[in-house]
Simulated scan of single mutants.
Amino acid sequence: MLRWPIAILILANVLAFAVLRGAFGPTPTAGGREPNHLNRQIRPESVKVQPVSAADAADQAVVGGPAPVAPISTSELPPESPQQ
């Protein structure tokens, strides 16, 4: 009863392995698909990388650090009045 689904899954895995190994040609992400974007850049030499200052870094999330504590105030709820 389960022979055909298992056989189909094994065949699908073998096909996926062959596709990822490049049996049917390179994958779409293997190369530049749109080289015109690089040619259409306006003044690419004017792009400069600048370090983030301490003031700007305060707004950035720290990846892997503890979650910030939210400024939430809590209070007890009033006792529930009986419904009539």
Rank of each mutant, 00 (worst) to 15 (best):
M1L: 11
R3Y: 10
W4Q: 13
W4D: 09
W4C: 00
P5V: 05
I6M: 13
A7Y: 02
A7K: 04
A7F: 05
I8Y: 05
I8W: 09
L9W: 11
I10R: 05
I10A: 15
L11M: 09
A12L: 14
A12Q: 01
N13F: 14
N13I: 11
N13Q: 08
L15R: 03
L15N: 03
A16F: 13
F17H: 04
F17Y: 06
F17Q: 03
A18S: 08
A18C: 08
V19C: 07
L20V: 05
L20Y: 01
L20G: 06
L20W: 01
R21V: 07
R21H: 05
R21F: 03
A23F: 07
F24W: 10
F24G: 01
G25Y: 01
G25T: 01
P26I: 04
P26G: 07
T27K: 13
T27M: 15
P28C: 03
T29M: 15
T29V: 08
T29G: 05
G32W: 08
R33Y: 07
E34N: 09
N36Y: 15
H37D: 06
H37Q: 11
L38Y: 11
N39S: 14
Q41N: 06
Q41D: 06
I42L: 14
I42T: 10
R43Q: 12
P44S: 09
P44I: 04
P44Y: 03
E45W: 14
E45G: 09
S46C: 05
S46G: 06
V47T: 11
V47M: 13
V47R: 14
V47W: 11
K48C: 03
Q50K: 15
Q50D: 10
P51W: 08
V52D: 05
S53I: 06
S53C: 04
S53H: 08
A55P: 00
D56H: 10
A57T: 00
D59N: 12
Q60S: 07
Q60V: 09
A61I: 10
A61Q: 11
V62K: 10
V63C: 05
G64K: 02
G64I: 04
G64V: 01
G65K: 02
P66M: 09
P66Q: 12
A67M: 13
A67G: 03
V69P: 00
V69C: 02
V69H: 08
A70N: 06
A70C: 02
S73F: 09
S73C: 03
S73W: 11
T74Y: 15
T74P: 00
T74H: 13
T74D: 06
T74C: 07
T74F: 14
T74Q: 13
S75G: 14
S75K: 15
E76P: 00
E76C: 04
E76G: 13
L77Q: 12
L77T: 08
L77S: 10
P78Y: 01
P79I: 07
E80C: 03
E80H: 06
S81M: 11
P82M: 07
Q83D: 07
Q83E: 11
